[in-house]
Design a protein around this nucleic acid. Structure first.
Length: 322
DNA sequence: CGGGTTTGACCCGCGC
DNA sequence: GCGCGGGTCAAACCCG
């Protein structure tokens, strides 16, 4: 397997050379591949040297800083850790993370509403790069596609976040087409797979509900839109992220690579974000323009417990060791 | 009728 | 090698 990928996808790595080069500074949510799964080691009292957010800081921020960064006024989403799908990861402390039953509930300082994380791409995602159907040729002889699939594309960046909402598929300004749904192991809630309907856009999105807290939706974006947002930004995710409370947060603003944001946020533009009407709106209002959805969408009660985050993730994401 | 959703089958990587 | 599980395909179906 791709040992070359051993150090996971790292937002700074990822396309360092391409889009995020200037962001080499620091991305708050970046989690080093070497770090373990999810938020496991993320212990307040003991910010594990090999884990989670602290890793993101690149020394430029401390835990408190991060916490502040997450202290978003009214976002409805909470970005979680990278979904560590990379099983080969040394299990050092993995199990701790996996212990959903024993979250570090003691942690407390972060009243974050949104936590963004670029999630390392799993090796699995690679196989997806060459969709079977994409070869116009034959539809049936899928086996023939194998050869083609061999070509490994660079991992797409992933960006996951949690959203407290009763709506599974949140508006984000882009149009998505659902192409699959799978049951999630150890979770009563299925995972839905969406693809951007734009022809040349290969951005994918996974949506699943936390098995721990059904009110929380875990949304994972993969890839970058190569087109403009077809619709006015309305989505919670985008709204949240592009809102002043997120982007403009004291720390976020300086740490979140704008390019990165623009990759995922339809309307976001480092040049015009202040012109974006959504940008001025309170998140609580712009999350869902539709009254109905507005009602359904709940304001996220920011968990101060990072441990909760790991709790929210289905076990597989942590690939914790048995 | 076009576009989106559902859903079973299939593919493939990984762990055992 | 086998089974598991995530991810994708694509036919059937649904809906405006």
């Amino acid at each position: 397997m791709a040992d070359e990928n051993d150090h996971y996808y790292d937002p700074f790595h990822y396309n360092h050379h391409e889009q995020l080069n200037h962001s080499s500074s620091s991305f708050p949510f970046f989690r080093d591949a070497s770090s373990t799964q999810n938020f496991q080691g993320f212990d307040h009292n003991n910010p594990s040297p090999h884990t989670t957010f602290t890793d993101c800081l690149h020394g430029s921020m401390d835990y408190n800083t991060l916490s502040k960064a997450f202290d978003l006024s009214c976002s409805s989403s909470e970005v979680i850790s990278s979904i560590d799908e990379n099983p080969k990861k040394p299990s050092a402390g993995d199990h701790s993370a996996g212990n959903q039953s024993t979250p570090n509930s003691s942690v407390s300082s972060s009243s974050n509403e949104a936590e963004a994380v670029v999630e390392e791409d799993s090796t699995k995602s690679q196989k997806n790069k060459q969709p079977k159907g994409c070869d116009d040729a034959d539809e049936k002889p899928k086996k023939e596609n194998k050869a083609k699939k061999k070509e490994k594309k660079p991992r797409e960046p992933r960006f996951a976040f949690l959203t407290k909402s009763e709506i599974d598929h949140l508006e984000d300004g882009y149009r998505w087409r659902k192409y699959g749904q799978k049951a999630v192991k150890n979770s009563p809630y299925p995972r839905s797979y969406y693809r951007c309907t734009s022809q040349k856009c290969g951005v994918k999105k996974r949506v699943e509900r936390s098995f721990q807290d059904p009110s929380i939706v875990i949304t994972t974006y993969e890839g970058q839109h190569n087109h403009h947002c077809p619709a006015t930004l309305r989505g919670s995710a985008a709204s949240m992220l592009s809102s002043p409370s997120f982007y403009g947060s004291s720390y976020m603003g300086s740490t979140l690579p704008q390019d990165f944001l623009s990759q995922f946020l339809p309307s976001y533009s480092q040049n015009d974000h202040h012109q974006n009407p959504m940008f001025h709106q309170n998140l609580s209002h712009n999350i869902h323009p539709q009254p109905q959805q507005l009602q359904q969408q709940q304001q996220f009660q920011l968990s101060r417990d990072y441990g909760l985050l790991q709790d929210l993730l289905p076990p597989f994401q942590g690939k914790q060791e048995p």
